[in-house]
Design a protein around this nucleic acid. Structure first.
Length: 620
RNA sequence: GCCCUCAUAGCUCAGUCGGUAGAGCACGUUCUUGGUAAGAACGGGGUCAUGGGUUCAAAUCCCAUUGAGGGCUCCA
């Protein structure tokens, strides 16, 4: 099956942070851990300065925690009223003023008693002290082994319970390299049952140039936002009347989706997958057996009554594929069996988590289930991992990393099989040369897994693919194959999604290419632009020839100026513009302009076609 | 689901102190027939998200609902 912890909604993954800094380059060319870097101290210290500024403005504010994060820092406050953008400006101005006062940061080790006295008006700090006193949790609520030393840092009038480290003095903070970004709600200690605090996010860098580079990157990310481009390029929409998290694919998006699906199908065909189709609903009993009603019910929609029987809309495809496997006796000779399906599933997601194409309620997984013998398992993993990487590479993703999640405390299945499976997964990752981290105990209860992450053009990481073992469903559905020995054996089952879901994959694709997809994926590949009406008959001839040659081409015969037509085509990111005027008509040529603004110029139709075909074949 | 913010023409947005609406783009018509990123004129288009309330009067103030955005939580 594909229980809850496999696939959050649309697609196995989430956006990680914008720039994921693991290491920082130092002036001597060496690298150091981010947590040990000066920048980390700068950010953490800037968070304190911010808290100090907030307390000046709201003397009764209750302060919670304020760590450095990958691209800056935040601090959580309990305030008498909601913060406004004006407040942020004001706070930021005060911070600059404070920084320029060259305030030193001073550390002092204290006892819990002293701490309780110092923070007697700060309930959140008192709670932290009590937890630290018990030696159980650090300031982020993470469990700790030893009873830690309590320390406070003071900077000017501001005192905070803090482990540090900090800069020695605000001189080390460049007041022109900080900026407050936004306010958001955040639960105290991330617990939705506890009070909602106001979190101020800010960013801080070593110098104004770095700050500017970061803000530019945020700008660039905004420009690439798939929701914005989806509207501009008429790729998809979702409307209130239909329902949130439900996607309408418009003709342009549908065209690209079909190309993706066709390619996917061809590759699976070549790789010995068998395609299957399965229904959108299934009886309650099916989901009872699979365990979904036990473990996944909160993500499933209410049942439908059909002649007194309960049916559920499918949140996953696995039980259906399992039944196809089960439809007759299987021999070891036909293993591995691979069933693939673009399966559309529906999952309940809380309204607040929905996000464009990246987190939706109805989506199509590029799903498949492999059934193999234990002996075949290492090869099968190798195969599926490489198949996955090739698939992603075809769409222009070349940087990968992975998480390998191993057996959790609560797990089904024989620990020996877990070990085998984990070893096979790890060996495959090594052979494929993928950098991976091990998430110890992070596997699903039914099997270990590999989650693959890709890096996009802005170096943002996205998790799309997942390859998972399942020791649960073969047992639940009593799957067998007849071995050489004539006995029934339990097959291994792997499920995998390469693109994740078409919705999410398309969203990532849009952002990766900023809508300017490679030619083979573009809904419209070439726009023919006649300069004057008298060129339309020849332009139409060109149009027909290119269409006949298999190019997706359009003719712009509006009574507009050529410049306007070029502008519109560029805005639609159409790769080739073929301009046709008197010269071209006379010599049976076209004048080629690219969406990059490059102008290869006048050429024969044949030359253009062979160029286009080359680009399409090269997937550029 | 929770906190905050938002919802005005197909799109992007303006609309002051409460006095029943504007721009640009897009669209339509006409003119224009041009050489590598916006030619011109005219025109159509709005129950100001929905439902209540306050008020002589609501796009504007209040409440609820729906949807969206930034986060949190969930997903892991």
């Amino acid at each position: 099956m594909e229980p809850r912890d496999k696939t959050p909604a649309p697609a196995m993954g989430r956006v990680f942070c914008l720039i994921y800094i693991m290491e920082v380059n130092m002036s001597n060319g060496k690298k150091e851990r981010y947590e040990d870097s000066h920048l980390y101290k700068v950010r953490h210290s800037t968070a304190h300065i911010m808290a100090s500024a907030v307390l000046e403005r709201f003397p009764n504010a209750k302060i919670a925690i304020g760590p450095a994060i990958d691209t800056g820092f935040y601090y959580d406050f309990d305030l008498p009223r909601a913060l406004t953008p004006e407040d942020l400006k004001e706070i930021e101005a005060r911070m600059r003023k404070l920084i320029k006062e060259h305030i030193p940061f001073e550390k002092k080790v204290i006892t819990a008693e002293e701490g309780k006295q110092i923070f007697k008006d700060q309930p959140y700090k008192l709670e932290l002290i009590e937890d630290l006193e018990k030696g159980q949790f650090d300031e982020h609520g993470n469990p700790v082994d030893e009873k830690p030393e309590l320390s406070i840092y003071s900077s000017g009038n501001f005192i905070d319970l803090c482990r540090g480290p900090h800069v020695a003095d605000t001189m080390e903070i460049n007041p022109s390299a900080i900026k407050l970004l936004n306010v958001a709600g955040a639960y105290w200690r991330g617990d939705e049952k506890r009070p909602m605090l106001q979190r101020i996010y800010g960013t801080a860098w070593e110098n104004p140039d770095d700050l500017k580079a970061y803000l530019d990157l945020l700008e660039e990310a905004k420009k690439r936002d798939h929701r914005k481009l989806g509207k501009e390029l008429e790729l998809f929409s979702s409307v209130e009347e239909v329902g949130s998290g439900l996607i309408l694919w418009h003709p342009n998006g549908a065209k690209t989706r079909k190309i993706i699906e066709d390619y996917w199908r061809d590759e699976h065909e070549k790789a010995d997958y068998d395609f299957v189709y399965t229904p959108h609903i299934g009886k309650a009993q099916l989901w009872e057996t699979s365990g979904h009603l036990g473990f996944y019910k909160e993500n499933m929609y209410s049942p439908i009554d059909i002649e007194g029987q309960e049916y559920y809309i499918k949140p996953m495809n696995c039980p259906f594929h399992v039944h196809i496997y089960k439809s007759r006796i299987r021999s070891y000779r036909e293993l591995p069996v691979r069933f693939a399906e673009m399966g559309t599933v529906y999952r309940y997601e809380r309204s607040g988590v929905l996000h464009g194409l990246l987190r939706v309620r109805g989506f199509t997984q590029d799903d498949a289930h492999h059934f193999c013998s234990p002996e075949q398992m290492p090869d099968e993993i190798d195969f599926v991992l490489n198949f996955c990487l090739d698939m992603l590479r075809a769409f222009g993703f070349v940087n990968f990393s992975a998480y390998l999640s191993t057996m959790p405390e609560k797990a089904v299945g024989d620990p020996e099989r877990w070990k085998d499976a984990e070893a096979a997964l790890e060996a495959s990752l090594k052979r494929a040369g993928i950098a991976y981290e091990i998430d110890e105990g992070g596997g699903a209860f039914y099997g270990p897994k590999i989650d693959l992450k890709i890096k996009d053009a802005l170096q943002r990481e996205w998790q799309l693919s997942t390859i998972q073992f399942d020791f649960n469903l073969p047992d639940k559905f009593d799957l067998t194959y007849i071995g050489e020995d004539g006995e029934a054996h339990r097959p291994y089952m792997i499920h995998r999604a390469l693109l994740g879901s078409l919705e999410r994959f398309f969203g990532v694709l849009i952002e990766h290419y900023a809508g300017a997809f490679p030619v083979w994926l573009m809904p419209v590949q070439a726009m023919i632009i006649p300069i004057a009406d008298r060129h339309i008959p020849y332009a139409d001839e060109v149009y027909k020839k290119l269409r006949a040659a298999g190019l997706r081409v359009k003719l712009d015969d509006r009574s507009e100026r050529m410049n306007a037509k070029i502008r519109d085509a560029e805005k639609q990111k159409i790769p080739y513009m073929l301009i046709i005027g008197d010269q071209e008509m006379e010599n049976q040529q076209v004048s080629l302009r690219l969406r990059s603004g490059e102008n290869p110029g006048v050429q024969s139709l044949e030359d253009f076609l062979s160029r286009a075909k080359q680009d399409i074949a090269a997937k550029i």
